[in-house]
Amino acid sequence: MLLDFRYRMALEFSDPVEDQYFVMRCIPRDTDRQKLTELSTEVEPDTAVRSDTDGLGNSMLYGLIREKHTSFLLTVSGTVETTGSLYEEHEDPSAVELFRYTAPSGYTQPGPELLSAYTMLAETAPADDYGRLIHYARYVRDTMEYLPGTTDVHTTAEEALRLRKGVCQDYAHVLITLLRLAGIPARYAAGLMRGEGESHAWVEANCSGYWYGIDPTNNLLVDDSYIKFSHGRDYEDCMVSRGIFRNPRAIQTMGIAVSVVPEDQEAAPQQ
């Protein structure tokens, strides 16, 4: 399917800032399941935007605005061709790289809450990895309540499960931790899904060598209506936006608007 996407980030500063550095991971990466066919980037105030790939192969856009300014607008838009395949990249199950995704990472250190959930699930879990992936994802979906504002970007999987609340980032971290406890390589994926709203996060798990995408927030298999920006061990590797600016008095307000529509449908109205 051909998908037109747009990711827009608007920052407003209460007081003029200078030396604003930004690093964005909001460019769809090429995989077996998606190819980027068109891309355009706009930044205001105007500045040179550099691009590179990070250690995990995710695309980065970055730049610097020296002069004083009170707002910042970044828009990335383009077209991605997605396939209906439910998995990508066959990797040898013994590949060294898979161990990156079985070791606990900062957000996915299991504590008592996750360990007891894991033990409880073990009683009913199917024997095969794919079966367990579906089983754990359903548990996460049934246990957690989607409630923005209850967690923040620092919330770990353990904390989120204790609260039984959170957003897509938390759902993903909880599922990743369960999968890793079961010895199944699991990685965090950040990107967009069809429709409008904010950026999204889900999970990819390696079962018998294939990376399957599953969206625990919506209890859906990831299909051709998803666009992936990046993957990594957890949120930290996939932060869509990172940045810093000078002026300790300035308070930043951020607005994110995204849209993903099939090319043959009418584009969503500008926001």
């Binding site: 990070d54 250690g55 995990l56 079985t102 070791a103 061990r233 590797d237």
Partner: peptide
């Protein structure tokens, strides 16, 4: 991969 000194960013 489970060493705290190993940094993914340095790949």
């Amino acid at each position: 991969f489970s060493s705290s000194g190993y940094l993914t960013a340095c790949e």
